[in-house]
């Protein structure tokens, strides 16, 4: 089934944002873990694996539309010097991923590719969960201050 080039391009742009997120959050998780911020480590690790799983149907969709999934391109990985700065880099990353999914849904809808649009909207609702979690961390940070906030990140209560 030959897909529109714009849809394949938008799928590949989504894939780039996903691959960037997988790597950035995996790195962030390991650095948080190394520094003892186990709660932050767990959240980043889980999200990294979730995004990897969600990249699968995106890759499958590109193939279905007779395109070549681009696993070569990856955007700049945001690596912070400290945990608080990492959270804001992760927020920017997640906003970018959500923006790519919104764009994908719009492009697919405008070209009547309803299968792709549905995939994009489904994934968007999942990515928004992590986006909201990151936004909540910014609010907690503002309320508690850095030291108290970070003290609360040492123990991980699953």
């Amino acid at each position: 089934m030959k897909g529109h080039k714009q849809v394949v391009d938008a799928l590949n742009a989504t894939l780039t944002a996903q691959l960037t997120a997988i790597n950035q959050l995996f790195l962030a998780a390991k650095v948080h873990e190394h520094r003892g911020f186990l709660r932050l480590a767990r959240a980043a690790y889980k999200q990294s694996i979730h995004v990897m799983r969600r990249a699968e149907p995106v890759i499958a969709r590109v193939l279905l539309l007779e395109g070549l999934p681009n696993l070569q391109r990856i955007a700049k990985v945001g690596a912070a010097e400290g945990p608080v700065e990492q959270l804001s880099l992760d927020l920017t990353l997640q906003q970018e991923l959500c923006a790519r999914l919104e764009e994908l849904a719009r492009t697919a809808l405008s070209l009547a590719d309803h299968g792709t649009a549905e995939l994009a909207e489904d994934q968007l609702s999942k990515e928004q969960v992590y986006l909201h979690w990151l936004e909540a961390q910014q609010r907690e940070l503002a309320q508690l201050g850095h030291d108290l906030y970070l003290a609360a990140q040492i123990h991980d209560a699953p």
Partner: peptide, 11 residues
């Protein structure tokens, strides 16, 4: 933040 990860250089 690390702008250059390969060479470990901060902003």
């Amino acid at each position: 933040m690390y702008v250059c990860i390969c060479r470990v250089v901060t902003q």
